[in-house]
Write a protein that binds this DNA or RNA. Sequence first.
RNA 1: GCGCCAGUAGCUCAGUUGGAUAGAGCAUCGGCCUUCUAAGCCGACGGCCGGGGGUUCGAAUCCUCCCUGGCGCACCA
Length: 547
Amino acid sequence: MRAKIHLEAALKAVLADKGWEWPEKAVIEPPKDKQFGDMSVNLAMMLAKQAKKAPRAIAEDIMAAMESDSLIEKIDIAGPGFLNFTFAPSFWHETVGVIMDAGTDFGSSDMGNGTKVQVEYVSANPTGPLHIGHGRGAALGDSLVRIMEKAGYEVEAEYYINDAGRQMLILGGSILYRARLKKGQDVPEPEDFYKGDYIATIAGEMLKLHPDLLKMDEAEAMELCKNYGMSNILEGIKEDLKAFGVRHDFWFSEKSLVADGKVDETFGDLTESGMGFEQDGAFWFKSTELGDDKDRVLRKSNGDTTYFASDIAYHDNKFKRGFDLVVDIWGADHHGYVPRMMAACEALGKKGGLHVILVNLVNLLRDGKPIAMSTRAGQFETLKDVVDEVGADACRFMFLSRKSDSKLDFDLELVKQKSMDNPVYYVQYAHARICSLNKKAAEKGTKAATVGPESLALLDTKYDMEMLKLLDQYPDFVEAAARTQSPHLISMFLQDLASTLHRYYSNCHVLSAENNVASARLMLLDCVAGVVKNGLGLLGVNAPESM
RNA sequence: GCGCCAGUAGCUCAGUUGGAUAGAGCAUCGGCCUUCUAAGCCGACGGCCGGGGGUUCGAAUCCUCCCUGGCGCACCA
């Protein structure tokens, strides 16, 4: 935000001059209420103790020192000692040039300073198609990657494939069971198996590929079913994610960790650092020393390693690949797993290197009535079905309009509706409206003005000012979204921006205005359309030119 | 029982690091199309920020104790 940058520099100069130190907790921000001006500063209150003066007296001093600043039109002192600044219109006009010059880079920053970040998300077991809950994690992860890249981080997106554990055996067993049923064999139902129709489909394909499947040795048949099922399902997952516009740079196999002996290596490392020990025939991680409630088993007394063991090895591998920050996006039902994973990272010498984002449940509804979901029972709405029905844009926007750690009601009928219940269209419509204006203007031979004092001076209504001030805030929203890893801030901003555009559209007629005014307005609206598209891009949502 | 998350307008939700009179959309009610897309704009109505206590110039936000809901507490993944 230029306004903030300018003020901060000016205020720091004043403080230096007075011999006061800049208080850590000083805040420069747009006030909630526009009547308090463009920028509000709590500096005087923060300085009271240090300067040994009343806040309002300090505010007077600062105000007097800043009166010569020509970019600032007005300074007020309010309440307990807030300093409220109002900038001159000419200051806001410069925003247009800034946005034009930046182009699609507007909002980019070097906040991340090239920090290497890995974001791991979705990582659903390849035992069935992605459901709507995975979709939320996918939208969040993908958007976060885009936002952090925009903010100057070097980001890689990864999917961890749990292809080594018990779930895979159950998958193999489930397919084999369905194959036997298909052949009319009367076999007992396995204790634990996946019931979805896709299993039957895969079983049918297996029987075609291996007509002698049921005559094989059981273990061999299971293995075949498992491998075929996994790769088949994984391909489906990749297709669904692609259709949802989600990017993963790497697909990391759990099996490869085990095969490379990385898990055993981890045991060795932990023993060496005194964080691992043998007891009751098992190998334990002393996680209680690092904040966990209990120590955790990594190798069971039967010799099998636990999921957690490979997860530690996996995170070790991540850090060894040189990431400064590792972000894991998990379902909120795994929150109990966070302390032990944090402990593990600390034991690996990477305290603070892991950040876990929890994504809460999606309540899928149709017309207000819940749709039950359970992969095991085979009763669920797949991500693909939902995306096919409501569209990827509406789906993503819905997911990204809420904080990730609160539950989300997702009503198919509501998300499909092209109405105000559905903000995605409100935002997209803002973009389409501007495109439509540009088309009409071109037919009339009216062009957007070029940036200059004359054209900018014509942007003189309160609606122009309102728009410019909001546009100036976009880079801050991007930074805040990256810093707090909260894509929903972008969604909030876009709804605000769209609202401001629609208000502008209703109050500042473009094409019927005087020629030079029309051109100046088209110039401003070019900026708006650019920022709308820019922001939607961070959410992975399209900006249509007509609707 | 212990732990994590949540509780803000009738509904769905925002609320930056503690800031000024707690915001937005939907719903309800009332206005606005001979002009650029009415998928829009403007106005009204609507609140014990779950409850009590505390910290301070100032609390929805921090601390503490309760209440309610969700989730988690394996040599499962």
